[in-house]
């Protein structure tokens, strides 16, 4: 692609298709650049309601950036986001976000229960303190991820997997309609992986819409019904049965996916070519 100057760069970005008003989470024409270097170019995706979608792509493909920029956490050059057809700032209560574990300082003086209670802060409102009911609800959420025994433990004394489950419980406490998770499976133990899968199933049973940045290609067909391939922009998206193909994997990962890996994936999923 030819190098572009500032003006045309902006004009050309953001020409996404019209937003899907029915989708719980629709992103269109999303362009993000760090210091002039575009990370995402005209990315778009309309999350299907009540489905589990995996966001996959190589390192540096802009997967986390896609979530952060659509949530307005980092500045975007262009792009629109709609939550059930509404602008995102009017729909904060409908969205729960699970950041990467490494994004916070775990030495912070707070207990697991404190962190889960933060998921309720929006509902509690300004100038009010969390009450006994809120603490009880936070405790229930910790139980859902098998962490009730660690409620009063300082978060720095938890293992990586346990910290991830605390983040998950915090998102559950939000009782949102759309869940956006950034690499929840990264570097977790088997118990945590099971807990996360249980939570995903529960969310699905409740009709929630879930998007998960995921790095383990082999488990994509096992856990997810839909997939979004990202690499500097949307490469492909759709139901796993139709979209999770060798062709799309090749397009997304290029030479970075070895032939042997592809063969293993074929076997794992009985994938079409």
């Amino acid at each position: 692609m030819a190098k572009k100057t500032g003006g045309s760069f902006l004009k050309e970005a953001g020409r996404g298709p019209a937003l899907d008003a029915k989708s719980p989470f629709a992103v269109s024409g999303l362009t993000v650049a760090y210091d002039r270097k575009p990370v995402l170019w005209n990315a778009g995706f309309a999350a299907p309601e009540g489905e589990l979608t995996a966001i996959v792509g190589p390192n540096g493909a802009g997967k986390s950036t896609f979530l952060k920029a659509s949530l307005g956490l980092i500045p975007k050059l262009s792009g629109e986001v709609a939550v059930f057809g509404r602008p995102i700032d009017e729909a904060r209560g409908d969205i729960a976000y699970v950041p990467q574990r490494s994004s916070v300082d775990w030495d912070f003086p707070a207990t697991a229960l404190d962190v889960v209670t933060m998921g309720l802060y929006r509902r509690i409102g300004w100038l009010r303190w969390p009450g006994r009911r809120d603490k009880e609800r936070a405790r229930e959420m910790l139980a859902l991820v098998g962490m009730e025994a660690f409620a009063d433990r300082q978060i720095g004394q938890l293992s990586g997997g346990q910290q991830q489950r605390v983040f998950l419980a915090r998102a559950l406490a939000q009782d949102a309609k759309v869940y956006l998770m950034d690499e929840p499976f990264a570097g977790v133990d088997a118990a945590t992986e099971r807990a996360i899968v249980d939570v995903l199933k529960k969310l699905l049973a409740e009709g929630k819409t879930v998007l998960v940045v995921h790095h383990d290609l082999e488990t994509v067909p096992v856990y997810f019904s839909h997939v979004l391939f990202l690499n500097g922009g949307t490469v492909a998206s759709g139901p796993v049965t139709e979209t999770f193909t060798a062709e799309n994997l090749q397009k997304t990962y290029g030479g970075r996916l070895a032939a042997t890996q592809l063969a293993a994936l074929h076997e794992a999923a009985g994938m079409k070519t």
């Binding site: 949530l71 956490l73 976000y97 994004s103 912070f108 933060m118 802060y121 100038l127 303190w129 915090r170």
Partner: peptide, 22 residues
């Protein structure tokens, strides 16, 4: 006292605070 919970939240996880609209 008035902003205790908000101060705690934004000191620990400012990005998450923003997603809550705080």
């Amino acid at each position: 006292l008035a902003f205790y919970k908000e101060l705690k939240l934004v000191s620990f996880d400012p990005l998450f605070a923003d997603t809550l609209g705080i």
